[in-house]
Nucleic acid binder design. Structure first.
Lengths: 188, 188
DNA sequence: CCTATCTGGAACATCAGTGTTCCACTGGAT
DNA sequence: ATCCAGTGGAACACTGATGTTCCAGATAGG
């Protein structure tokens, strides 16, 4: 029995609840704890055993978001290559966040509030600055706008994916094509 | 005294409530009727006098959205010029919908449910088809994706506008530039 | 098998939002 | 001055979500 983090049954139950919360809240930000408990295949009592408050559950969702965002940042290797390439890599990696994208976009979870220490925002800022300097990004667009395009396109892509009507590969290729066209410097 | 629609005091009160509802619900989709009444500078009792249900209020918001969307469609003259130009005109016109964009995007109000008779969706579909045929739109992108880009960029633009940190003119120019770059055919 | 742990349901108090009714007040029109 | 439509507040019942407690059944692990 480890001293700190949970193992076995408890750990699995806690994860099931957290996953259900992300899934259900993405579909309906004002979903009740009962709905979340149902989705997790768990009694409402059990949910309260793990997360006494709705607030504590949301906090845990934010922390989980921060963790996955941090992982994404590492996997995207935002500090390598040109700014544009880094951003396109970020696109592909972030798309895998799935429902978390919805939560971040609907501000159930704020990108910056969910744990600034993951350093994702900073890495992305750096990639933008690098791209504007190395001539791969369109200098007529402000850094804030560039990132806005990234996030909103990402959200669009995830919406299509979730819909399920477009094959995943087509979504990814249209997403990358769009972001590249929108953000690339004119001459490029 | 007209027979049908309200005039004078009642008409003004009804409009104040409707406007407040759009404003408040855009900021918080699950806002209480009390908050909306406060924002409209009206007692909660009065709100119920005009809109007996929350449901009826939402229905009226949808109808209002349909009306304004219809107006936008007319003003954008979607059936004139090339497909790309029509879409860029749509961008500028739709940006003026303001908070309604937020409501449509967060699906408090669905674009198609809010009154399909306004014909906006149809006109936009037509403009896309025209653009794909006349060579002004990128044929590598599906019609659904093209419109998705339009809406999500629009939402981004409105977010920046609402924020108030970027001058309106800059928002419009970045928006048009982005949409044009993203949607235009490669050779264009 | 047996025990410690984990679980789900029932019951409960609490609270906020909703929708209703009633009444007193205001301001403008006659 | 006197109507009177329009208004806002107080009070009420009702509902659904929340958080708590308690207990009986299930389950894992020795």
């Amino acid at each position: 029995m480890t001293v700190d983090s949970e193992t076995g049954t408890r750990g699995r139950t806690r994860k099931a609840i957290l996953d259900a919360a992300i899934r259900v809240l993405a579909a309906d930000p004002s979903a009740s704890l009962g709905q979340i408990a149902d989705a997790a295949d768990v009694g409402r009592t059990t949910l309260h055993r793990y997360y006494p408050d709705r607030a504590e559950l949301l906090t845990s969702v934010m922390q989980e978001a921060g963790r996955r965002l941090g992982d994404a940042a590492v996997r995207a290797r935002l500090d390598e290559g040109t700014g544009l390439d880094a951003i396109l890599r970020a696109c592909q990696t972030l798309l895998q966040l799935g429902d978390l994208l919805t939560l971040m976009f609907t501000e159930v979870v704020s990108i910056d509030t969910c744990g600034p220490e993951h350093g994702f925002s900073q890495s992305l800022d750096d990639a933008c600055a690098r791209g504007l300097a190395d001539g791969t990004l369109d200098t007529r667009l402000s850094p804030g706008w560039l990132q806005g395009i990234l996030w909103s396109s990402l959200y669009l892509g995830w919406s299509e994916l979730r819909e399920g009507t477009t094959p995943p590969h087509d979504v990814v290729s249209q997403l990358l094509l769009t972001v590249r066209k929108a953000l690339a410097a004119p001459g490029e």
